[in-house]
């Protein structure tokens, strides 16, 4: 069953999205995303036969596109780690 999350814009518009993963990295070797909440959403779109995931991170109290390349690379590495099972879950907030 899909997890859901409601995205709410400043103007109050709300849209429900399928949440794939929501986490923050605690790794020191990923300093650009350490302790920053990151959200992966299933857009429902397809790229070829693959599914398109959309990522946001929290900046200034709002979830925004990850506009920092170093951070974006660390996010992708983290996603690969999760897929490969190379992760340790420290807890749930």
């Amino acid at each position: 069953m899909d997890e859901k999350v409601i995205l709410v814009t400043p103007s109050g518009e709300r849209v429900e999205k399928r949440l794939v993963c929501f986490f923050k990295s605690l790794d020191d070797d990923r300093p650009n995303i350490k302790n920053i909440p990151i959200m992966a959403i299933d857009t429902g779109a397809l790229n070829g036969s693959n599914y398109v995931l959309e990522f946001f991170w929290e900046q200034n109290g709002m979830f925004q596109p990850i506009n920092d390349e170093a951070a974006w690379n660390e996010v992708k590495k983290t996603i690969i780690d999760i897929i490969n099972g190379n992760t340790e879950v420290a807890g749930v907030l």
């Binding site: 990295s25 790794d27 909440p37 959200m39 780690d81 340790e88 879950v89 749930v92 907030l93």
Partner: peptide
């Protein structure tokens, strides 16, 4: 091994 905190 990446260390993560899951959020909800």
């Amino acid at each position: 091994m990446a260390k993560l905190m899951l959020l909800k």
